[in-house]
Amino acid sequence: MNNKRYIRTIALIALLLVFGTFFKLPYYVTMPGTAEPLRPLVEVEGGYKEKGKFMLTTVRMGQANLFSFVFAHMSKYNELYRIDEVRQQDENDEEYTYRQLKMMENSKETAIAVAYKKANKPVSYRNKGVYVLYVVDNMPAAKYLKSGDQLVAIDGQRLNDADEFIQYVSGKKKGDRVRITYKRSGKEKTATLTLAPFPNEKNRIGLGVSVMTDHDIVTDPPVHIESDDIGGPSAGLMFALEVYNQLVPEDLTKGYDIAGTGTINIDGEVGPIGGISQKVIAAHKAGADIFFAPNERGAKHSNYKEAVKTAKDIGTKMKIVPVDTFDDAVQFLQKLS
């Protein structure tokens, strides 16, 4: 009898563990990730060496199960977000991942352009086509297109840029039909779609597809960045610093371990990111000496101010440095002893 009760108890515990692990909640949980050296990921042909290192900081994120949901409520630096705060409307996991990887690609290319211009090196772009980022459910495109498809033409007009597609479709009205030529897995297909109102925006007409222009960046000397499966645009600043440091004789690291985060645009402006506290913790654990944080022009609740608060809370000796532009970071490093 006792054996049967024991077996039932073990089975119940096992069932609860399986349920708690594999049952997914409508939340994402984020936590401190890692701070990894950029030099193994970034290679400028014939680039200069460095004594210290620039580091890429990450945040770990996944859909919450029962255990991670409870732990997030107990941990100060684990955060919960509703799915609709992370994904766009009607975006599935595959589309979200694809969008994040494409954002990383764009971030890398922008970082390279900023670094090469700063170093007075040649840089240009070569378009590779227009691609689908994600498709809205219950819209015309959902029947034919999916994330990753290349849009070749619309009504027989070749597409080289996403803006061409957007402008053409925006000139249409409800009920108009357009013929889309697209490629998937190397095979070219054609579909005729009828423009319709968006489900929650009756005054907005379209096909229900988000698109982007994909392109290669051409540089002299050549540069290669291997970001594997890292997604999102938040490493732009650090990629730009690593590329620039390999292009110029002066070693900006001067032997320091330098972490940081922030998006970057083609003008070298640094933008805010999510998970700044978690990235400060990751950099601290990796032994960074300096951490660059987006200053947001001194905004009341800027990334920089949150980073300073977190640094004080965890008792790190790492110096938190505010930056609004790529030049801010370069000038700070140039003044280091």
Rank of each mutant, 00 (worst) to 15 (best):
Asp84Met: 06
Glu109Arg: 01
Glu91Ala: 12
Gln100Asp: 15
Thr110Val: 03
Asn92Ile: 01
Tyr81Val: 00
Arg82Leu: 03
Lys108Glu: 02
Ser107Leu: 07
Met103Phe: 08
Arg82Thr: 07
Asp90His: 11
Ser107Asn: 04
Ala115Phe: 09
Gln89Tyr: 12
Gln100Val: 12
Val86Met: 05
Val86Thr: 14
Leu101Tyr: 10
Leu101His: 03
Tyr81Pro: 01
Asp93Ala: 01
Met103Cys: 00
Asn92Trp: 00
Gln89Gly: 09
Arg99Ile: 11
Val86Gln: 07
Asp90Cys: 01
Asp84Gln: 09
Met104Arg: 11
Asn106Arg: 02
Gln89Asn: 11
Gln88His: 04
Arg87Asn: 08
Ser107Trp: 06
Leu80His: 02
Tyr96His: 08
Asp90Tyr: 12
Val86His: 09
Ile83Val: 05
Glu95Ile: 14
Gln88Phe: 06
Thr110Gln: 03
Ala113Ser: 05
Asp90Lys: 01
Leu80Phe: 15
Gln88Ser: 02
Tyr96Ala: 06
Glu95Gly: 15
Lys108Asn: 07
Met103Ile: 11
Lys102Ile: 12
Glu85Lys: 15
Leu80Arg: 06
Asp84Pro: 09
Asn106Val: 03
Tyr98Val: 09
Asp84Leu: 05
Val86Gly: 05
Tyr96Cys: 02
Glu85Val: 12
Glu85Pro: 09
Thr97Asp: 06
Thr110Phe: 03
Glu85Trp: 13
Leu101Asp: 13
Ile112Phe: 06
Thr110Arg: 01
Lys108Cys: 13
Tyr98Arg: 07
Glu95Val: 14
Asp93Met: 00
Glu91Gln: 00
Asn92Pro: 12
Glu94Cys: 00
Ala111Ser: 01
Gln89Val: 04
Arg87Cys: 13
Leu80Pro: 02
Leu80Thr: 05
Tyr98Trp: 08
Tyr96Met: 00
Asn92Arg: 01
Asp93Cys: 01
Ile83Cys: 06
Glu95Ser: 12
Arg99Met: 14
Leu101Gly: 14
Glu95Tyr: 07
Ala111Arg: 13
Arg99Gln: 05
Tyr98Pro: 14
Gln100Leu: 15
Thr110Lys: 05
Lys102Tyr: 07
Glu94Thr: 08
Ser107Cys: 10
Leu101Asn: 12
Ala113Tyr: 06
Glu85Cys: 07
Ala115Cys: 10
Glu94Leu: 05
Val114Trp: 05
Lys102Cys: 15
Asn92Phe: 00
Val86Asp: 01
Ala111Cys: 11
Glu109Thr: 02
Glu105Phe: 04
Arg99Gly: 00
Arg87Val: 03
Gln88Met: 14
Ala115Val: 15
Arg87Asp: 04
Asp90Ile: 08
Arg82Trp: 08
Ala113Asn: 13
Met104Cys: 08
Glu109Phe: 10
Tyr96Arg: 09
Glu105Gln: 13
Asn106Gly: 15
Lys102Arg: 15
Asn106His: 11
Gln89Thr: 07
Val114Tyr: 04
Gln88Asn: 04
Asn106Thr: 12
Val86Ala: 05
Thr110Tyr: 01
Ala113Lys: 04
Arg99Cys: 11
Asp93His: 00
Leu101Ile: 14
Met104Glu: 09
Asn106Glu: 10
Gln89His: 13
Met103Tyr: 10
Glu91Met: 14
Arg99Thr: 09
Lys108Val: 15
Lys108Pro: 05
Ala113Leu: 10
Tyr81Lys: 13
Glu109Ser: 11
Asp93Glu: 00
Ala113His: 02
Met104Ile: 13
